[in-house]
Design a binder for these strands. Structure first.
Lengths: 121, 121
DNA sequence: GATGAATGCATAAGAATATTATGTATGGAT
DNA sequence: ATCCATACATAATATTCTTATGCATTCATC
C-alpha cells in the first residue's frame, strides 16, 4: 500500500468518502481490502487508497450511521463487511451528484476560454 | 468572505493551488482579492475562496518560487500583485493537466456502468 | 459626518483529513 | 523457510482548510 500514487495526493483528498459511499451503493456489501482493490481496478492503478485513511473513514461512517458492519470468518481470519444504511444510501447519491456538479464548475475555471492550452488535447 | 459555500468544503480542498496557478497563467498579474472575485465570477458564486486559505497559499507559492510579487500603491492602500515565474508557469500546466486527468479517472469510479443513477442527468 | 459595506492585506487557533509508519496475523506460493 | 498478498487496526505527524480576528482605506448613503 506504500506505492507512489500517480496523482499528487492533494487532489485525491476530500474524495475518499465519496468513493467509498459510491462503491458501497453498487455492491451491497464490501470489506476494506476489497474496496482498495476495486478502486485500483477502476482507476487502472492511478488511485491507491491508503489503509491509514481508509479504515478511519470506514469507522467514522459507521459511527455516523451511514454504514453497518458484519463480521465474517474466513478460515481463521475475520473479515469485516460494510453495507450502506438507508441514511448512507441517501448520502451516497448526494455526494456523487455533488462531485459531478463540482467537476462541471471546475471546468469553468480550468478550461477557461481566454487561454491557449495545448495540453488539452 | 464568510458566506456558506455551495459545495461541501472537502471537495474544494486540494484544488486551491491549481486554481490560483491557472488564473495567474492567463492574467499576467493578479492580487489576492482579485483572485477571490474572479473565482466567484467564473463559478457563479459556487466556489468562494476564504482568505485564511488563500493568503497562506499565495505566500507558500512565493516561498517556493512559483510566483513573484510586486507592491503597488492604490491611494493610501498597498496592493500586492502576484505573477508566475517560469517555474510557476510550468507547474500551472502540470497541475491543470493533472486535474483534468484526475476528473477522467474519477468518472470511472463515480459514473460506473454497473449502477442505476437517475441523478446523472 | 457617521455608519456600514466593500476593498485589501494578514495571522492564529483549531478541525479535518491525509501520509507515513508500525503492529498483528493468516494463507498461499517458491 | 521465506516472501508476498490478504486483512485488520492505530499512532504520530503533516498538510490544508475553516473560523475568527485584526487592521486600514474607500465609497455610498442617510
Amino acid at each position: 500500500m506504500y506505492i507512489c500514487p500517480m496523482y499528487s495526493s492533494e487532489l485525491v483528498k476530500g474524495t475518499l468518502r465519496t468513493i467509498i459511499l459510491k462503491l458501497l451503493s453498487e455492491n451491497t456489501k464490501m470489506y476494506g481490502y476489497e474496496i482498495t482493490q476495486k478502486v485500483k481496478e477502476l482507476t487502472d492503478d492511478e488511485i491507491q487508497l491508503t489503509e491509514g485513511a481508509l479504515y478511519p473513514m470506514l469507522h467514522k461512517l459507521e459511527a455516523e450511521g451511514a454504514v453497518e458492519t458484519e463480521l465474517v470468518n474466513i478460515g481463521k481470519r475475520v473479515r469485516k463487511y460494510y453495507r450502506l444504511t438507508n441514511l448512507g444510501n441517501e448520502e451516497a447519491k448526494e455526494k456523487v451528484s455533488e462531485f459531478l456538479r463540482f467537476m462541471d464548475t471546475m471546468k469553468n475555471v480550468l478550461n477557461h476560454k481566454n487561454s491557449f492550452e495545448p495540453w488539452l488535447s
